[in-house]
Amino acid sequence: MIGSMRMKFIPRTLSLLTLSLFLSGCAGVNLNPLQWFGGDEEVNPPAELIEISSEVRLSRIWSVDVGNGQGDNYTEITPVIEGNRIYAASENGSVLAVDLDSGDVVWRNRLDDLQLTGGVGAGGGLVVVGSRDAEVLALDQTTGDIVWVSEVTSEVVSQPIANDDIVVVQTVDDKVAALNTDGGERRWIYESTQPPLTLRGTSRPIFTPADTVVAGFSNGTLVSVSASDGVWRWEERVAVPEGRYDIDRVIDIDGDLVLDGDRILASSYQGNLIALDVVTGRIVWGLQDASSYHGLTQGFGNLYYCSDKSHVVAVRDNSEDTIWTNEDLQYRAITAPTAINNYIAVADFEGYVHLLSQIDGRIVGRAQVDSGGVRANLLAYQGRLITYGNSGTLAAYSLQ
């Protein structure tokens, strides 16, 4: 199985998602693919919600307004949890810290005249966001005051990561830069070759116990570099581009990577799921033809992913066995899966949160949290589900 990972590939038909390739990097246009088509016909229309037998319900504990949320463009600004606080940001420059237990706003800062597109990152005493104008802004975690501003090569559309030494950001032009935590000066930069067409978005890099940074790129490769100086350690493909046309050869790694002990788990669009050794980059497990532009999650000995058709799939870890597949949310533009208690949580373009049983994949709970939809990944904190709606509502829910 592993030896054959270099690699079978089946081109897929044109979808709403792949059409977004043409507009990546274009300013001033609506990047929401659900709104590109007029008339009565839809390409890949989203499935209608079916009636469910509810076994669990979501009860809101607190909520906070965060500016204009995702704004009018197709951003995916996602909050981050650090300790007992959650840090969130809006497209129009509102950044805040919220106590996760009480929902109280600890501080709020309005970054005037800035359009935020990437965030939120936290670490090393900083809260980090990125702008459409290729700026990285670091705020003090305690006060919310701006500590430094640094320029990078292009727009930041993913979450930065940070520790006591460096802040790492990945830009839409397939570059990864490390900035000094204490002043924002550039420490190193890694550049990857960008294909002619890509999806709008990048995955979030990760720090590893091997003192490296691993990042996924739009050419379907994972790259590991030294965290201290950016020196190349290894590179491996998650997918190989095939097909006659550029649109058939899109294999972006857009979903966030998962660090699982000495393994890194990754997925790619029109590609595969793979697990690689953190130190060597050797492929230790793989599942072919598992196209996804989302991240993964784990639970009950399974890996869970959302396909490019918004199917939720459970695969037995370290095997090719599919435990279950739920197609009820087809083309509803769902978020990456989040494991919480006995459930897998996803949200969709109409703002519904769906709770699926980890055992058999049935939808056993549902609630609409934002009529404007949800693109930010859901977060879990001490049995609570944290949602950030496109309209700007940050909320915590208990599962009952």
Rank of each mutant, 00 (worst) to 15 (best):
P160W: 07
S158T: 15
N180K: 14
S150H: 10
I161K: 03
R186Y: 01
L197A: 04
T198N: 03
Y245H: 11
I189H: 01
V127A: 00
V214F: 11
A122W: 01
E191Y: 04
R108G: 11
V213C: 04
I206W: 03
R244E: 15
D173Y: 08
R244F: 15
G125I: 04
L137M: 12
N180W: 12
P195G: 00
G220Q: 05
W148N: 00
I146N: 05
E135P: 01
V214L: 12
D211M: 04
V169L: 06
Q170F: 00
N180Q: 14
D229K: 04
D133K: 14
D229A: 06
S203K: 01
S154A: 15
V136Y: 07
R233C: 07
W107F: 15
A177K: 02
R233G: 01
T221N: 15
Q141R: 13
E185D: 15
R110I: 09
S228Y: 06
G124E: 05
D211A: 09
Y190F: 12
P196T: 00
G130Q: 11
F207A: 07
G123H: 06
Q141W: 04
S150K: 09
D173F: 09
D140V: 06
E155Y: 04
A210K: 03
S150C: 08
L114R: 15
E242K: 13
L137N: 03
G144N: 13
T221C: 14
I189P: 01
G118E: 11
D113P: 03
V120E: 07
P241C: 01
L197W: 04
E242S: 13
G130K: 09
W234E: 08
A138G: 13
V156R: 05
R204E: 14
W234F: 12
D164I: 00
A215T: 12
G118M: 10
N180S: 15
S203W: 02
D174H: 03
D113I: 00
T171Q: 05
R187P: 02
D211V: 00
G220F: 05
I206G: 06
D112R: 15
Q170T: 09
Q115S: 04
W107V: 08
G121C: 10
S218D: 12
V169Q: 06
S192F: 07
V127Q: 02
V156N: 03
R233E: 13
V167N: 09
V156P: 06
E185S: 15
A122C: 12
